[in-house]
Design a protein around this nucleic acid. Structure first.
Length: 424
RNA sequence: GGAGAGGUGGCAGAGCGGUUGAAUGCGGCGGUCUUGAAAACCGCUUUACCCGCAAGGGUAACGGGGGUUCGAAUCCCUCCCUCUCCGCCA
């Protein structure tokens, strides 16, 4: 949720940042400012009336104490009308507040100047391309066929147990998955991130604070019996650790990492995008989350990118880094880099990481502040990124590392897997 | 799931329906004292919104919501949560 002071004091900048989302930015901002004006005048009126009532109540208390009962009764009579006015003023004020809140919830984050214009993913900027795709041997297979052939991965078993999009990993496939999780966690810990194991279900307050509600309600699995949501990413519980918190400035930066399964309904997806592990309802992910001083958040974003580049390089996967254009940047993000790996057998790029700076968009909902100079509370910046998302990494490793003799395990994983080749 | 107790400021812990945004203690910050430190003493120490250049002023908040009342942390209803005991259980 955008901050009102930002909209008031930097109207032009806010509009410029929103215009790149291909929405009517000026209308969105000016409507917010108009609703804010309504709310403030409603509150001023309510406060004035309330103040008046408080004064009368106080005087009644004193009259009662001094035994002047008749004068007290006279004063009481005066409050009846006043209370009616207060009730009406409160309704006006609450309606204005709700209208403002509803509108603000519908406005996405304002994009940073560095974010390019564009409507769709084809207009994303390729920042970097690293590594060369392998030359696969004759008869190379896509990962879902490799999964069956080497007994690593079974989509049909998942259908039996649950439904489409819930993969079952078996044997060395399961072990490789676990190795990747351990490797990613170890690398993040070495880089200074504190490891967190959070709950896999969250309440509505948490889902709201990081922006999943109300914007992406249909994307989450909802446990209606207890009104909880299965997390679509570890970002939700981990970032919410700092909901309603005021930090001392020297506590910043905060860096956390967590592995969790992620659950996404992916309503409306279809076609070849969803073959195998390309898009599933449950996948494993190691997520890094940071809470930063506003002056440092962009530097932190670049550090996170470097971390992810290191992981991909270690795994020997060809990858590219994209700067998402305005039309493709997520609702809550101010700027996002995507990392994609090349899955050679399919001949396509798979997104394995999305690294975003949210600015104050989340912290405003989280009420996550720190005490800045002169002791004022200031909204912190939040960031997060996948480091990394597993199912697709596994897919790329299987496809790229296949040889006529089997699937070669990347060197850095061998101490985790305990084997260096997967054979039939 | 059953029975009981309780939810107050960073923590601990008071609070006859009327200057209680809230005693007291601890912690924290500033000062006096000291060569320095400790101790002692003095003062300060929640958050959000509104008006104001500022000084300052106003409103709200004692788990959430609703009610009674001129006035509620204090009374009533309801929901949520925590703790203890029992049951179940990895």
């Amino acid at each position: 949720m955008l901050e009102l002071p930002f909209l008031r004091n930097h109207r032009v900048q806010a509009i410029a940042g929103l215009a790149k989302r291909n929405i009517d930015a000026e209308a969105a901002v000016d409507r917010a400012l108009a609703l804010d004006e309504d709310r403030r005048s409603a509150q001023a009126e309510l406060d004035r009336l309330q103040s008046e009532l408080n004064a009368i109540s106080r005087s009644i208390g004193e009259l009662m104490k001094s035994g002047a009962r008749e004068e007290a009764d006279t004063a009481k009579a005066r409050t009846t009308e006043l209370k009616g006015s207060i009730d009406r003023a409160r309704e006006t004020m609450e309606a204005a507040d709700q209208a403002l809140r509803d509108h603000l919830c519908s406005v996405p984050n304002s994009l940073l100047p560095a974010v390019p214009h564009g409507k769709s993913p084809v207009e994303n900027t390729v920042i970097l391309e690293q590594g060369t795709p392998p030359n696969l041997h004759e008869g190379a297979l896509p990962h879902w066929e490799l999964g069956e052939r080497y007994d690593l991965l079974h989509m049909e078993l998942g259908v039996k147990l649950t439904g489409a999009g819930f993969p079952v990993y078996t044997g060395k496939g399961a072990r490789l998955q676990r190795a990747l999780i351990a490797f990613f966690l170890d690398k993040a810990t070495e880089a200074g991130y504190q490891e967190i194991i959070p709950p896999h279900l969250v309440n509505a307050d948490s889902a709201f604070a990081t922006g999943q509600l109300p914007d992406k309600e249909g994307q989450m699995y909802h446990v209606t019996g207890d009104d909880l949501y299965l997390i679509p990413t570890a970002e939700v519980p981990i970032t919410n650790l700092y909901r309603d918190v005021i930090l001392d400035q020297d506590r910043l930066p905060i860096a956390m990492v967590g592995y969790t399964p992620c659950f996404r309904r992916e309503a409306g997806s279809y076609g070849k995008d969803v073959r195998g592990l390309n898009r599933v309802h449950q996948f494993d992910k190691v997520e890094i989350v940071r809470v930063e001083h506003p002056d440092r958040s962009q530097a932190a974003l670049e550090e996170m990118v470097e971390h992810v580049k290191g992981l991909l390089t270690d795994l020997g996967l060809p990858f590219r880094q994209l700067l998402l254009c305005g039309g493709d940047t997520g609702f809550a993000s101010a700027m996002t880099y995507d990392m994609e790996v090349y899955a050679a057998a399919q001949g396509r790029w798979l997104e394995v990481s999305s690294i975003s700076n949210f600015g104050t968009f989340q912290s405003n909902r989280l009420k996550l502040r720190f005490r800045g100079e002169n002791k004022k509370t200031v909204l912190a910046h939040t960031l997060n990124g996948s480091a990394l998302a597993l199912a697709r990494i596994l897919a790329a490793i299987l496809e790229n590392n296949q040889t006529p003799d089997g699937i070669v395990i990347p060197q850095v994983l061998r101490s985790y897997t305990g084997f260096d080749l997967i054979t039939a």
